Simulated assay, not measured.
Amino acid sequence: MDIKPTESELEILQVIWKKGQCSVREVHDELTKSKDAGYTTTLKLMQIMFEKGLLERDASSKTHLYKALITREQAQQGALDKIINTVFKGSTSDLVIQALGQHRASKDEIDAIKSFLDQFEGKD
């Protein structure tokens, strides 16, 4: 499955991942805390996400409840693949160098990165 949600879809998924299962109203209320969003826009986006297979809908009651069909990790992987392929022309090292050069990593984060690289080098 080629999972590449749009930015707006990712905002909706963030709410659903946090809450588990939500109505359109619950998602909309959460989104409006940080941005101006119309209810019908949220509804339409969630209907499109359902059609795309990003969300599951329980229509057994009057209020439809939506649940994510993809995990946060799957969405992150899809977004990362897109960035690596389009922005960095397939170069993972360029991505890492840019990320570390632009954003200050804490000592714990650097230690975790070093540990991961040590484990990665051990895999052949």
Rank of each mutant, 00 (worst) to 15 (best):
A79N: 11
V24C: 03
R104M: 03
I84C: 04
D29Y: 02
V24H: 05
I70Q: 12
T42H: 05
L100K: 01
H64F: 05
L10V: 14
K19D: 07
H64W: 13
L117A: 11
H64L: 03
S34I: 12
D58P: 04
M46E: 01
T92A: 06
F116N: 00
S115M: 00
S115H: 09
G20Q: 02
A105M: 07
K123F: 13
L31S: 05
K67I: 07
S60R: 10
G78P: 02
V27T: 12
A37L: 05
P5K: 06
K4W: 11
S115Y: 01
V96N: 00
L10D: 07
G38R: 15
S93G: 02
E51M: 14
F88R: 00
L80C: 03
P5Q: 12
S106T: 02
L13S: 09
A37G: 04
Q98E: 11
R57D: 11
E121S: 13
I84Y: 00
V87S: 07
Q76W: 14
R72I: 08
A59I: 14
E26I: 08
W17V: 13
T63K: 14
E121T: 13
V87R: 09
G90Q: 05
E26M: 04
S23T: 14
A79E: 06
R72M: 13
V27M: 09
I70R: 09
G38F: 14
D111N: 08
M49G: 05
E9I: 08
R104L: 15
L10W: 15
A105Q: 02
I110Y: 00
D108A: 01
D2P: 05
T63M: 04
L10E: 15
R72C: 02
K62C: 14
M46W: 02
L45C: 10
P5S: 04
G90P: 05
H28C: 10
K82T: 06
I83P: 10
I70D: 02
E109K: 01
D108T: 00
